[in-house]
Amino acid sequence: MFHDIWKTFLGFLQGFGAMSLFFLRLLQYTPAVLVTRFRLVFYQVYNAGALSIVIIMVCGLFVGGVLGLQAYSNLERFNAEDTTGIFAGFALIKEIGPVITALLFAGRAGTALASEIGLMKATDQLSAMEMMAVDPLRYVAVPRFLGGVISVPLLTAIFTTIGLLGSHLVAVELLGVDVGAYWQQLQNALDMEDVMEGIYKSITFGIIASLLAVWEGYNSVPTAEGVGRATTRTVVITAIAVLIFDFMITAWIL
Protein backbone atom coordinates (compact mmCIF):
# COMPACT_ATOMS: atom_id res chain seq x y z
CA MET A 1 0.00 0.00 0.00
CA PHE A 2 2.72 2.46 1.13
CA HIS A 3 4.82 1.27 -1.82
CA ASP A 4 1.96 2.04 -4.24
CA ILE A 5 1.47 5.54 -2.83
CA TRP A 6 5.22 6.16 -3.10
CA LYS A 7 5.22 4.93 -6.71
CA THR A 8 2.27 7.16 -7.59
CA PHE A 9 4.01 10.12 -5.96
CA LEU A 10 7.22 9.41 -7.88
CA GLY A 11 5.23 9.10 -11.11
CA PHE A 12 3.58 12.45 -10.41
CA LEU A 13 6.96 14.08 -9.76
CA GLN A 14 8.35 12.57 -12.95
CA GLY A 15 5.39 13.83 -14.99
CA PHE A 16 5.59 17.26 -13.40
CA GLY A 17 9.32 17.47 -14.15
CA ALA A 18 8.82 16.41 -17.76
CA MET A 19 6.03 18.97 -18.19
CA SER A 20 8.21 21.71 -16.67
CA LEU A 21 10.97 20.92 -19.18
CA PHE A 22 8.39 20.95 -21.97
CA PHE A 23 7.18 24.37 -20.74
CA LEU A 24 10.75 25.71 -20.74
CA ARG A 25 11.25 24.50 -24.31
CA LEU A 26 8.02 26.22 -25.36
CA LEU A 27 9.27 29.45 -23.76
CA GLN A 28 12.67 29.02 -25.38
CA TYR A 29 11.12 28.81 -28.87
CA THR A 30 8.53 31.54 -28.25
CA PRO A 31 10.55 34.59 -29.46
CA ALA A 32 11.58 32.87 -32.71
CA VAL A 33 8.05 31.62 -33.38
CA LEU A 34 6.58 35.09 -32.74
CA VAL A 35 8.99 36.54 -35.29
CA THR A 36 9.05 33.88 -37.99
CA ARG A 37 5.67 32.17 -37.64
CA PHE A 38 3.40 34.93 -36.42
CA ARG A 39 0.81 33.91 -39.03
CA LEU A 40 0.41 30.54 -37.29
CA VAL A 41 0.05 32.21 -33.87
CA PHE A 42 -2.50 34.63 -35.29
CA TYR A 43 -4.50 31.73 -36.73
CA GLN A 44 -4.48 29.98 -33.34
CA VAL A 45 -5.75 33.13 -31.61
CA TYR A 46 -8.64 32.92 -34.05
CA ASN A 47 -9.02 29.14 -33.64
CA ALA A 48 -8.85 29.01 -29.84
CA GLY A 49 -10.00 32.53 -29.00
CA ALA A 50 -12.33 34.00 -31.58
CA LEU A 51 -14.25 30.75 -32.01
CA SER A 52 -14.86 30.65 -28.24
CA ILE A 53 -16.37 34.15 -28.08
CA VAL A 54 -20.01 33.11 -28.45
CA ILE A 55 -19.91 30.54 -25.64
CA ILE A 56 -18.00 33.03 -23.45
CA MET A 57 -20.56 35.77 -24.08
CA VAL A 58 -23.60 33.58 -23.44
CA CYS A 59 -22.13 32.19 -20.22
CA GLY A 60 -20.96 35.66 -19.13
CA LEU A 61 -24.43 37.08 -19.59
CA PHE A 62 -26.12 34.43 -17.47
CA VAL A 63 -23.41 34.26 -14.78
CA GLY A 64 -23.64 38.06 -14.47
CA GLY A 65 -27.41 37.80 -14.33
CA VAL A 66 -27.39 35.23 -11.55
CA LEU A 67 -24.85 37.27 -9.58
CA GLY A 68 -27.07 40.34 -9.89
CA LEU A 69 -30.03 38.29 -8.73
CA GLN A 70 -28.24 36.76 -5.74
CA ALA A 71 -26.61 40.03 -4.73
CA TYR A 72 -29.87 41.94 -4.92
CA SER A 73 -31.92 39.39 -2.99
CA ASN A 74 -29.40 39.23 -0.13
CA LEU A 75 -28.49 42.93 0.03
CA GLU A 76 -32.12 43.97 -0.08
CA ARG A 77 -32.60 42.48 3.41
CA PHE A 78 -30.17 45.10 4.74
CA ASN A 79 -31.55 47.89 2.52
CA ALA A 80 -28.20 47.85 0.72
CA GLU A 81 -29.42 46.94 -2.78
CA ASP A 82 -27.62 49.99 -4.20
CA THR A 83 -24.36 48.12 -3.61
CA THR A 84 -25.37 45.27 -5.93
CA GLY A 85 -22.92 46.66 -8.48
CA ILE A 86 -20.02 46.32 -6.03
CA PHE A 87 -20.89 42.74 -5.17
CA ALA A 88 -21.36 41.57 -8.74
CA GLY A 89 -18.45 43.63 -10.09
CA PHE A 90 -15.92 42.45 -7.51
CA ALA A 91 -16.96 38.84 -7.90
CA LEU A 92 -16.73 39.03 -11.69
CA ILE A 93 -13.52 41.01 -12.01
CA LYS A 94 -11.48 39.30 -9.29
CA GLU A 95 -12.74 35.71 -9.22
CA ILE A 96 -15.51 34.46 -11.40
CA GLY A 97 -14.47 36.09 -14.68
CA PRO A 98 -10.95 34.62 -14.80
CA VAL A 99 -11.91 31.22 -13.30
CA ILE A 100 -15.00 30.47 -15.39
CA THR A 101 -13.35 31.76 -18.57
CA ALA A 102 -10.41 29.41 -17.98
CA LEU A 103 -12.77 26.48 -17.33
CA LEU A 104 -14.83 27.27 -20.43
CA PHE A 105 -11.65 27.69 -22.47
CA ALA A 106 -10.43 24.27 -21.29
CA GLY A 107 -13.77 22.71 -22.26
CA ARG A 108 -14.11 24.41 -25.64
CA ALA A 109 -10.59 25.11 -26.92
CA GLY A 110 -8.31 23.01 -24.64
CA THR A 111 -10.04 19.76 -25.60
CA ALA A 112 -9.89 20.73 -29.29
CA LEU A 113 -6.16 21.48 -29.03
CA ALA A 114 -5.36 18.26 -27.14
CA SER A 115 -7.35 16.03 -29.48
CA GLU A 116 -6.04 17.77 -32.61
CA ILE A 117 -2.40 17.34 -31.55
CA GLY A 118 -3.12 13.79 -30.33
CA LEU A 119 -4.65 12.84 -33.67
CA MET A 120 -1.74 14.43 -35.54
CA LYS A 121 0.53 12.19 -33.49
CA ALA A 122 -1.63 9.09 -34.03
CA THR A 123 -1.65 9.64 -37.81
CA ASP A 124 2.15 10.15 -37.96
CA GLN A 125 1.84 13.83 -38.93
CA LEU A 126 4.26 14.86 -36.19
CA SER A 127 6.75 12.15 -37.23
CA ALA A 128 6.35 13.25 -40.86
CA MET A 129 7.27 16.80 -39.86
CA GLU A 130 10.33 15.54 -38.02
CA MET A 131 11.32 13.61 -41.12
CA MET A 132 10.88 16.77 -43.19
CA ALA A 133 13.34 18.44 -40.77
CA VAL A 134 10.58 20.63 -39.33
CA ASP A 135 10.44 20.66 -35.52
CA PRO A 136 6.78 19.95 -34.58
CA LEU A 137 7.35 21.70 -31.27
CA ARG A 138 7.91 24.97 -33.14
CA TYR A 139 5.35 24.38 -35.87
CA VAL A 140 2.53 22.76 -33.90
CA ALA A 141 2.98 23.16 -30.14
CA VAL A 142 4.30 26.72 -29.68
CA PRO A 143 1.77 28.51 -31.94
CA ARG A 144 -1.12 26.70 -30.22
CA PHE A 145 0.30 27.44 -26.79
CA LEU A 146 0.75 31.13 -27.62
CA GLY A 147 -2.70 31.30 -29.23
CA GLY A 148 -4.21 30.14 -25.93
CA VAL A 149 -2.01 32.39 -23.77
CA ILE A 150 -3.08 35.45 -25.79
CA SER A 151 -6.74 34.41 -26.02
CA VAL A 152 -7.60 33.67 -22.39
CA PRO A 153 -7.02 37.22 -20.98
CA LEU A 154 -8.96 38.68 -23.92
CA LEU A 155 -11.80 36.21 -23.41
CA THR A 156 -11.76 37.00 -19.67
CA ALA A 157 -12.19 40.70 -20.46
CA ILE A 158 -15.14 39.88 -22.71
CA PHE A 159 -16.67 37.53 -20.13
CA THR A 160 -16.35 40.09 -17.35
CA THR A 161 -17.76 42.94 -19.45
CA ILE A 162 -20.75 40.91 -20.60
CA GLY A 163 -21.17 39.62 -17.01
CA LEU A 164 -21.38 43.20 -15.71
CA LEU A 165 -23.92 43.91 -18.42
CA GLY A 166 -25.94 40.82 -17.41
CA SER A 167 -25.85 41.87 -13.78
CA HIS A 168 -26.92 45.39 -14.80
CA LEU A 169 -29.82 44.00 -16.82
CA VAL A 170 -31.12 41.97 -13.87
CA ALA A 171 -30.42 44.44 -11.05
CA VAL A 172 -31.20 47.73 -12.79
CA GLU A 173 -33.59 46.89 -15.59
CA LEU A 174 -35.57 44.09 -13.93
CA LEU A 175 -35.30 44.68 -10.18
CA GLY A 176 -35.17 48.46 -10.19
CA VAL A 177 -31.79 49.29 -8.62
CA ASP A 178 -30.89 52.89 -9.44
CA VAL A 179 -28.58 52.92 -12.47
CA GLY A 180 -26.44 55.75 -11.12
CA ALA A 181 -25.99 54.03 -7.76
CA TYR A 182 -25.18 50.69 -9.42
CA TRP A 183 -22.28 52.01 -11.48
CA GLN A 184 -21.14 54.82 -9.14
CA GLN A 185 -20.83 52.50 -6.15
CA LEU A 186 -18.80 50.03 -8.24
CA GLN A 187 -16.56 52.77 -9.61
CA ASN A 188 -15.88 54.19 -6.14
CA ALA A 189 -15.12 50.84 -4.56
CA LEU A 190 -13.00 49.41 -7.36
CA ASP A 191 -9.22 50.05 -7.35
CA MET A 192 -6.75 49.38 -10.10
CA GLU A 193 -5.30 46.68 -7.83
CA ASP A 194 -8.58 44.76 -8.02
CA VAL A 195 -8.54 44.89 -11.80
CA MET A 196 -4.88 43.86 -11.84
CA GLU A 197 -5.72 40.84 -9.67
CA GLY A 198 -8.14 39.68 -12.35
CA ILE A 199 -5.56 40.33 -15.07
CA TYR A 200 -2.81 38.41 -13.22
CA LYS A 201 -5.17 35.51 -12.78
CA SER A 202 -6.32 35.46 -16.38
CA ILE A 203 -2.72 35.46 -17.64
CA THR A 204 -1.76 32.64 -15.25
CA PHE A 205 -4.84 30.60 -16.15
CA GLY A 206 -4.17 31.18 -19.85
CA ILE A 207 -0.67 29.74 -19.45
CA ILE A 208 -1.96 26.78 -17.39
CA ALA A 209 -4.87 25.89 -19.69
CA SER A 210 -2.83 26.20 -22.88
CA LEU A 211 0.22 24.37 -21.51
CA LEU A 212 -1.88 21.45 -20.23
CA ALA A 213 -3.84 21.15 -23.49
CA VAL A 214 -0.70 21.13 -25.64
CA TRP A 215 1.19 18.84 -23.23
CA GLU A 216 -1.61 16.28 -23.00
CA GLY A 217 -2.03 16.20 -26.79
CA TYR A 218 1.69 16.01 -27.44
CA ASN A 219 2.17 13.16 -24.97
CA SER A 220 -0.99 11.21 -25.68
CA VAL A 221 -0.80 7.52 -26.47
CA PRO A 222 -1.24 7.48 -30.28
CA THR A 223 -4.45 5.43 -30.32
CA ALA A 224 -8.16 6.34 -30.35
CA GLU A 225 -8.39 5.49 -26.65
CA GLY A 226 -5.20 7.43 -25.86
CA VAL A 227 -6.42 10.59 -27.59
CA GLY A 228 -9.78 10.33 -25.81
CA ARG A 229 -8.04 9.97 -22.47
CA ALA A 230 -5.77 12.95 -23.18
CA THR A 231 -8.82 15.08 -23.99
CA THR A 232 -10.52 14.14 -20.72
CA ARG A 233 -7.35 14.70 -18.72
CA THR A 234 -6.98 18.15 -20.24
CA VAL A 235 -10.32 19.30 -18.82
CA VAL A 236 -9.97 17.59 -15.45
CA ILE A 237 -6.38 18.63 -14.71
CA THR A 238 -6.93 22.19 -15.98
CA ALA A 239 -9.97 22.58 -13.71
CA ILE A 240 -8.05 21.36 -10.67
CA ALA A 241 -4.94 23.42 -11.48
CA VAL A 242 -6.94 26.60 -12.13
CA LEU A 243 -8.79 26.34 -8.80
CA ILE A 244 -5.57 25.63 -6.87
CA PHE A 245 -3.75 28.53 -8.52
CA ASP A 246 -6.78 30.78 -7.96
CA PHE A 247 -6.52 30.16 -4.24
CA MET A 248 -2.73 30.64 -4.25
CA ILE A 249 -2.85 33.93 -6.17
CA THR A 250 -5.68 35.29 -3.99
CA ALA A 251 -3.82 34.32 -0.81
CA TRP A 252 -0.64 35.92 -2.16
CA ILE A 253 -2.32 39.19 -3.14
CA LEU A 254 -4.51 39.66 -0.04
Binding site: M120, T123, D124, Q125, A128, M131, A133, D135
Partner: peptide, 19 residues
Protein backbone atom coordinates in the same frame (compact mmCIF):
# COMPACT_ATOMS: atom_id res chain seq x y z
CA UNK B 1 20.38 15.65 -37.94
CA UNK B 2 17.86 17.94 -39.62
CA UNK B 3 20.33 18.56 -42.48
CA UNK B 4 20.60 14.80 -42.94
CA UNK B 5 16.81 14.44 -42.94
CA UNK B 6 16.52 17.12 -45.62
CA UNK B 7 18.42 14.71 -47.87
CA UNK B 8 15.93 11.94 -47.05
CA UNK B 9 12.33 11.50 -48.08
CA UNK B 10 10.03 9.18 -46.19
CA UNK B 11 6.71 7.72 -47.20
CA UNK B 12 4.70 6.74 -44.11
CA UNK B 13 2.29 3.79 -44.00
CA UNK B 14 -0.81 6.00 -44.11
CA UNK B 15 0.76 8.89 -46.02
CA UNK B 16 0.78 11.17 -42.94
CA UNK B 17 -0.43 14.15 -44.97
CA UNK B 18 -1.07 17.30 -42.94
CA UNK B 19 -4.85 17.25 -42.77
Amino acid sequence: LYRMRQRMGMLFQNGALLT
